[in-house]
Write a protein that binds this DNA or RNA. Structure first.
Length: 356
DNA sequence: AAACCGGGGGT
DNA sequence: ACCCCAGGTTT
């Protein structure tokens, strides 16, 4: 199959099978940018609602550049990889300063912006700028490795190089934006990781993996190390309608989001040891007997499995000095602050059950 | 090159 | 339980 045949068959398939998505109705590099960053490591089905809300709140670069951390994190709440949003804000400020508020659409310029790597730069440059630069994401890697029998592991540099080269050779320079979206759409809808729909694939008769019975083996996956388990012991300290939250200002997961005073251990912990953990000393008015202890809340991250337990304590007086980064807020104010999804879920559960 | 960074949905 | 998603930054 010639390169030209591949291109035209792919574009033909895309024209009649593409999903109707809001960022496909525009060539404005700002909207393309927002969609691409939201969709990093995120499925369309998960990111779509976030995209709409984000555009409503930050309709242009200027509004994004002047956003506050709390508002920005609140918009991103539950989506994960929160650094994406912070990097986008950093980049938006630079666009205002160095690009007169116009999001650039040339590949090399885009690469200089925080949070924009080879994939996102190629996506914006091709879709908004018509530049013939090929995207290589998980979909493209899978489609090309199966079509052409690339057997180097996906994580290896040789695998990356081979696929990058192949992608650059295959892209249609006349319609680079459509071509890039088409091959990703094929990967998302037909050439899926498991149980691909080879029967309806336009390339079913031309696919290396299909011809050699290797569809299940390609692309070659890397072996992943086991994920460690950590135990999170949260203190929910409340005084009538108010409770103490704290902002996570140290580097690491959930940076700049809010949670509660926390003891983190490799193991479960007894109440007695919990009370000797040092936290009660920070809150002198705290009743040492918990009013309520949650069950274990299990939460899985890519590189960490968390087992959390929430211990509710009563504060005997509200006007004690609070440690750095801690706030005493009313329950009505909770929804103004961005929390990790695990916390959001727990707070919803206990409020539904009418507990404190 | 390897580690880090979230959360969800499919199988 | 495992896979992986329109990846990028940091170390």
């Amino acid at each position: 199959m010639t390169r030209e045949t591949f291109r035209s068959a792919l574009l033909m398939w895309y024209a009649s099978n593409k999903r109707d998505l809001p960022w496909r109705k525009t060539c404005d590099p700002y909207f393309i940018w927002v969609s691409e960053v939201i969709l990093q490591q995120t499925r369309v089905s998960q990111g779509l609602a976030y995209y709409k809300r984000f555009i409503r709140q930050y309709p242009d670069v200027r509004t994004l550049a002047s956003s506050s951390s709390d508002a920005l994190m609140k918009i991103w709440e539950g989506l994960g990889y929160y650094r994406r949003a912070r990097n986008m804000r950093t980049a938006a400020i630079r666009v205002m300063e160095d690009f007169q508020g116009k999001v650039p659409f040339r590949y090399e310029e885009l690469l200089t912006l925080k949070g924009i790597g080879p994939y996102t730069a190629a996506a914006i440059a091709s879709i908004a700028g018509g530049e013939p630069v090929a995207v290589v994401d998980g979909n493209v890697y899978r489609v090309l490795s199966r079509m052409f029998g690339i057997t180097a592991p996906k994580s290896s540099s040789t695998g990356q190089k081979q696929v990058n080269k192949l992608a650059a050779r295959m892209i249609d320079p006349r319609r680079p934006g459509d071509y890039n979206q088409a091959i990703m759409e094929l990967g998302a809808l037909i050439c899926t990781p498991r149980n691909p729909s080879c029967e309806t694939c336009p390339f079913t008769g031309y696919c290396y993996a299909r011809a050699h019975g290797l569809v299940k083996q390609l692309p070659v996956r890397e072996i992943k190390p086991k994920v460690p388990v950590r135990y999170f012991h949260y203190f929910i300290l409340s005084y009538h309608d108010r409770l103490i939250i704290r902002q996570r200002t140290r580097k690491g997961i959930w940076h700049l989001l809010y949670d509660f005073p926390l003891i983190e251990r490799a193991e479960e912990i007894s109440i007695k040891n919990l009370l000797n953990s040092g936290v009660p000393e920070q809150f002198p008015g705290m009743n040492p007997y918990p009013d309520r202890i949650s069950g274990i809340i299990s939460h899985k991250l890519t590189h960490l499995h968390i087992r959390a337990r929430f211990y509710h304590f009563d504060l005997r007086h509200p006007d004690q000095p609070l440690p750095e980064n801690h706030l005493l807020i009313s329950r009505k104010e909770i929804k103004k602050y961005p929390f990790p999804q695990m916390i959001v879920k727990y707070l919803n559960e206990i409020s539904l059950n009418n507990h404190r």
